[in-house]
Design a protein around this nucleic acid. Structure first.
Length: 418
RNA sequence: GUGGGCGUAGCUCAGGUGGUUAGAGCGUCAGGUUGUGGCCCUGAAGGCCGGGGGUUCAAGUCCCCUCGCUCACCCCA
C-alpha cells in the first residue's frame, strides 16, 4: 500500500477519464460559444468576504468552506462555487452589459465525500449579468439542455420553480416558518434545526417525518406577486415554444440564499441515490450590489462535471475519445530511425507511437498492437542496411511491403488518408 | 457532522468453525516462434491480507481503536 494517497474527497484523474473530461469541456465550450458567451477564469482563491454573501444560512458558507489566513494576514477562501467570483469580477472590471460569461473549473467544499460528491469538484457554468429579460432564463436552461443532449444524455429532466421577488420570498418564508412551527412536534429533530436556520430548506427534506408534517404546507405560488407570476409564465412559455420538456416543482428551493424568481435543477433519472442533481441554477439579484457594484440582475447555472459523467456512464454514452495511434514505429536496428521517424511523422500531423528500451521485435509488435495503430513501420537490420522500411497493415488485410525510407512519411499519409 | 456496509496482488475477487511456504482470473514481463502483434501454451515478477493494539501455542480469519472507500441522512454539482 502506498505511503501517501489522495486526501479524502480528492481524486486523481487519469486517462481515459482525463481525456473524457477534456472532451466534455470542449463540448460545453462549443455550445456556449455559439450563444455568444465568453470564457472567464477567476482565481481559485478569493477574499473570504466574496463568498460570505452567498448566505449565512447555508452550509456552503458556514461549514464547508476551505479557508486560511495567508502570509499577508488576508483571510482567503478556496471558492465553493463560481457565481460569486464572476460577480466580483464583474464589479472589478465593469464589462458592458449584458455580460455573458462561461467558466469551467474546480471548486472546493469540505463535505463528507460520497460517490458523485467530492471535496474538489469541477463545474461548468454560465452567468448573465445586467439583464432581467426572462428570455435569458429560457436561454440558459436551453443551453444546459443542449449540452446534455450533445453528450448523448436523454435521461436528464428539468425541474423548475419560482421563488418570487425578494419580498414574495420573504413573505413566503415567514408564512412557511409559521406553518412549520405549528407542526414542530411532528418534525424530526434535525428538521427542527433546519426550521430555525432556514425554513425553506425544510421543503425538500428527505426525512419521512418532515415530509409528512409538510404535506399540506402552503404552496409558494400563492405568494407570487403579479410581476413574479408573469416572469414565471414567460419562462415556461419560452421553454414550451422551444420544445423543451420540464416539470414544475413548488418545493424546489435550492441551497444558496441569493436566488429569486426562476430556480431550476437538472436531475438524471439514470442516477439513483441522493446525488442525482447534475446541475442547477436560477436568477439572482443583490449579489453584485452586495459586492459593491450597482444593482444588477443575474441569471445562470452550474453543472457538476463529475456527476454529469456519472450520468453518461449510467446511460452508456459519451465514452472517452480514442487515443489510438495512427502509426507505430518498430525499430530493432537501433539505427536512430525510431527517434527520427516518430518525430517526422508527428510533425507531419500523425499520432505516432514507438517502443523504448530496445525491446525484442515480438515485444515491440505487441506494443504496436496495443497502441491501436493501423500501421506499423518496421525498421530491422535488413531495412537499416538497405535504406528501406517495412510497412505492416496491423489489420492483416493486406500483405506487408517494403518501401524506401525516404518515401515512408508520404506513403503513410497516402495510406491513412486516401 | 450522524448512522449502516466494506477494506486480501496493478484491477475484479476466492480464502467453512483461527492451524504449515496467502490463491484464481484479467493485466504486466519473458519464452514457445534466433525479424512480426492478436488466438493458444509455458513460466516469472508482483501481497506490511488498509494501519495500530489486543486475545492465543498460532490471527487474513476473533476483539478494540484508527484510517480509507461506500450507502443513507445532511448538504449540494
Amino acid at each position: 500500500m502506498a505511503q501517501f494517497a489522495t486526501s479524502p474527497g480528492m481524486r486523481d484523474v487519469l486517462p481515459p477519464e482525463s481525456m473524457r473530461m477534456r472532451a466534455a469541456t470542449g463540448v460545453f465550450a462549443d455550445v456556449v460559444t455559439r450563444a455568444g458567451y465568453g470564457e472567464v477564469a477567476p482565481p481559485l482563491l478569493e477574499d473570504i468576504g466574496v463568498f460570505a454573501r452567498l448566505g449565512d444560512g447555508t452550509d456552503v458558507v458556514t461549514k464547508e468552506m476551505y479557508d486560511f489566513v495567508d502570509k499577508g494576514g488576508r483571510h482567503i477562501a478556496l471558492r465553493p462555487e463560481q457565481t460569486a467570483s464572476v460577480c466580483r469580477l464583474f464589479v472589478e472590471h465593469r464589462p458592458p452589459t449584458p455580460f455573458k460569461a462561461w467558466y469551467a473549473g474546480a471548486n472546493f467544499r469540505y463535505e463528507k465525500p460520497q460517490r458523485g460528491r467530492y471535496r474538489q469538484f469541477d463545474q461548468f457554468g454560465v452567468e448573465v449579468l445586467g439583464s432581467s429579460d426572462p428570455d435569458l432564463d429560457v436561454e440558459v436552461i436551453a443551453l444546459a439542455h443542449d449540452f446534455y443532449r450533445s453528450l448523448g444524455l436523454t435521461g436528464v429532466e428539468i425541474v423548475i420553480n419560482s421563488l418570487g421577488l425578494p419580498t414574495d420570498r420573504a413573505a413566503y418564508t415567514a408564512a412557511l416558518g409559521e406553518f412549520c412551527r405549528s407542526r414542530a412536534a411532528d418534525l424530526s429533530e434535525a428538521g427542527r434545526d433546519t426550521l430555525a436556520k432556514n425554513p425553506l430548506r425544510l421543503l425538500d427534506s428527505k426525512r419521512s417525518e418532515d415530509r409528512a408534517a409538510l404535506a399540506d404546507a402552503p404552496p409558494i405560488d400563492e405568494f407570487w406577486s403579479v410581476e413574479a407570476a408573469q416572469h414565471h409564465e414567460h419562462v415556461l412559455q419560452g421553454l414550451t415554444s422551444l420544445g423543451i420538456e420540464f416539470t414544475e416543482d413548488r418545493r424546489l428551493v435550492r441551497g444558496l440564499d441569493y436566488y429569486r424568481l426562476t430556480t431550476f435543477e437538472f436531475r438524471s433519472s439514470a442516477l439513483d441515490g441522493a446525488q442525482n442533481a447534475v446541475g442547477g441554477g436560477g436568477r439572482y439579484d443583490g449579489l453584485v450590489e452586495n459586492l459593491g457594484g450597482p444593482s444588477t440582475p443575474g441569471v445562470g447555472f452550474a453543472l457538476g462535471v463529475e456527476r454529469t459523467l456519472l450520468a453518461c456512464d449510467a446511460e452508456n454514452v459519451f465514452s472517452a475519445p480514442s487515443n489510438a495511434a495512427d502509426v507505430f514505429i518498430v525499430d530493432t536496428a537501433g539505427c536512430g530511425d525510431a527517434l527520427a521517424m516518430t518525430t517526422e511523422l508527428r510533425r507531419s500531423g500523425l499520432r505516432c507511437e514507438r517502443a523504448y528500451d530496445a525491446r525484442s521485435m515480438k515485444a515491440q509488435m505487441k506494443a504496436a498492437d496495443r497502441s491501436g495503430a493501423r500501421v506499423a513501420i518496421i525498421v530491422g537490420e535488413h531495412e537499416a542496411q538497405t535504406g528501406t522500411v517495412t510497412i505492416r497493415d496491423m489489420s492483416g488485410a493486406t500483405d506487408q511491403q517494403s518501401i524506401s525510407r525516404n518515401e515512408a512519411v508520404e506513403y503513410i499519409h497516402r495510406l491513412l488518408n486516401p
